[in-house]
Simulated scan of single mutants.
Amino acid sequence: MKAARSVFQSLIQLRHECRSAHTSSCINAALQKTGKGWNAMKVSDLLDGNERQVLTVRPNETIGMLARMLQRHRIGVMVVSHDGRTAEGIISERDIAYGLAERRGELHLLPVSALMTRRVITCTPDTRLSDVVGLMRQHHIRHVPVVDGGHLAGIVSIRDVMEYRLNEIERRYKSVQHLASLSD
């Protein structure tokens, strides 16, 4: 029992070290509202009641401008969209790094459309979180835009998923700890 407590306490400590205020409040609200387990939790549970602006960049903006936007907002990915409502592509800091290896000095002048991923893997608000993880694994991606009725409704990151899982482990640990204290 001591070894299990040690592992769970380490996980709880990790949760506290890597949480971001917005992501944590979003997941905590979803947990309190739904009380759902991992297999039943939907993307909509994560997004409900939380304004989650999806930052977009136009395909004709330059990579230099994109890099400044990523830095300013402290993010690693942006959805590419002409109108800010539809996903025409997605571009990440990884795309920029790979582009630098190929294009070198001209990179900052290129349009975003030259490096963006055109086949965007998306989910809907009704998609289960466990299915989103499957998409991330299958396609080796860390961000999945949420599309509802053809329009962007949010974005789920691997960090969101990790935060949810750590919250769930902490909640289960506290339940086990409570049961163990009752048997003493």
Results as ranks from 00 to 15, higher is better:
residue 21 A to M: 08
residue 40 A to V: 00
residue 93 E to A: 06
residue 134 G to V: 04
residue 105 G to P: 00
residue 74 R to E: 09
residue 85 R to N: 03
residue 101 A to I: 14
residue 152 L to W: 09
residue 111 P to A: 05
residue 59 P to T: 05
residue 2 K to D: 13
residue 56 T to P: 01
residue 166 L to K: 07
residue 124 T to L: 05
residue 105 G to I: 00
residue 79 V to C: 04
residue 118 R to P: 00
residue 36 K to W: 01
residue 39 N to Q: 11
residue 71 Q to C: 01
residue 161 V to P: 06
residue 131 D to K: 12
residue 119 R to D: 12
residue 130 S to G: 00
residue 1 M to W: 10
residue 92 S to W: 08
residue 97 A to S: 10
residue 175 S to H: 13
residue 179 L to V: 09
residue 152 L to M: 11
residue 13 Q to R: 15
residue 68 R to G: 02
residue 81 S to R: 09
residue 13 Q to S: 12
residue 174 K to T: 07
residue 143 H to G: 03
residue 171 R to M: 08
residue 150 G to Q: 06
residue 166 L to A: 02
residue 121 I to N: 01
residue 102 E to Q: 14
residue 152 L to F: 12
residue 23 T to A: 12
residue 75 I to D: 04
residue 178 H to A: 15
residue 157 S to I: 00
residue 116 M to R: 03
residue 72 R to K: 14
residue 147 V to D: 01
residue 174 K to L: 15
residue 7 V to T: 11
residue 63 I to H: 02
residue 179 L to H: 15
residue 27 I to F: 02
residue 57 V to Y: 04
residue 172 R to L: 15
residue 128 R to H: 14
residue 103 R to K: 13
residue 45 D to Q: 03
residue 73 H to W: 07
residue 79 V to E: 01
residue 52 R to G: 03
residue 115 L to E: 05
residue 115 L to H: 04
residue 137 R to T: 06
residue 184 D to E: 11
residue 15 R to K: 14
residue 80 V to S: 05
residue 121 I to R: 08
residue 41 M to L: 14
residue 84 G to D: 05
residue 129 L to Q: 03
residue 91 I to H: 00
residue 18 C to R: 10
residue 106 E to H: 02
residue 99 G to M: 07
residue 25 S to T: 13
residue 95 D to A: 01
residue 77 V to D: 10
residue 60 N to Y: 11
residue 120 V to I: 03
residue 47 L to D: 02
residue 54 V to C: 11
residue 64 G to V: 03
residue 116 M to S: 02
residue 112 V to F: 05
residue 49 G to R: 08
residue 139 H to T: 07
residue 142 R to L: 11
residue 103 R to L: 13
residue 90 I to M: 08
residue 141 I to G: 06
residue 16 H to G: 00
residue 84 G to H: 04
residue 124 T to H: 06
residue 87 A to S: 10
residue 142 R to G: 06
residue 107 L to S: 04
residue 122 T to K: 01
residue 1 M to V: 09
residue 49 G to D: 11
residue 142 R to D: 07
residue 120 V to R: 01
residue 117 T to S: 10
residue 127 T to D: 05
residue 91 I to W: 01
residue 93 E to I: 03
residue 5 R to N: 14
residue 3 A to R: 14
residue 28 N to G: 06
residue 109 L to K: 13
residue 28 N to M: 12
residue 63 I to Y: 02
residue 61 E to W: 06
residue 85 R to D: 00
residue 22 H to M: 02
residue 151 H to Y: 03
residue 33 K to C: 10
residue 137 R to M: 06
residue 75 I to C: 09
residue 124 T to E: 12
residue 63 I to D: 03
residue 55 L to Q: 07
residue 122 T to E: 06
residue 147 V to N: 01
residue 79 V to H: 00
residue 24 S to C: 08
residue 91 I to V: 15
residue 65 M to V: 13
residue 110 L to A: 09
residue 9 Q to V: 04
residue 38 W to T: 07
residue 66 L to C: 11
residue 50 N to H: 15
residue 171 R to T: 08
residue 96 I to V: 15
residue 175 S to W: 08
residue 150 G to M: 01
residue 100 L to V: 07
residue 183 S to T: 13
residue 32 Q to R: 15
residue 103 R to E: 09
residue 24 S to I: 05
residue 23 T to Q: 08
residue 58 R to K: 15
